[in-house]
Amino acid sequence: MSADVDALEFIKSCESGVLQSDLWKALKIDSRKCSRIVAKLMKENLITRQLESIDGIRTYRLCYADKSNSKRFKSLMPVLIFEPCAGCIEECEPEHCAKLSEWIFSIVIGKEGTITAEDQPEDYGR
């Protein structure tokens, strides 16, 4: 495994992220190499970096980006169905789109629990 992958795996394994100053020690690499790896992982949006001060020494807390990103876009899949507009190549008519209707209704049903599937007209998009 390359040092990049090792670093990413290590950051990923730390629930609340890891200090950059601890990362190079844990990976047994020098701090300059660690900076290069961190820069590369950041460029690929795989990790996030936040300035932190430990005993007056400035360092960075590195967090695996997937966690925050998954949460960031959770509104695209609030229920089990992924939002229907992604990759859709049909003529777009949001007012009458049956797939969009189905998705909206599945959220209403999922969150309220008061509307049953039978309440939903098949071609609700009309």
């Binding site: 990103n69 876009f73 695209l76 899949m77 992924f82």
Partner: peptide, 11 residues
Amino acid sequence: GTIHKAYIMKL
């Protein structure tokens, strides 16, 4: 990530 996988599935 769940969202990424679901996105791929949708596409």
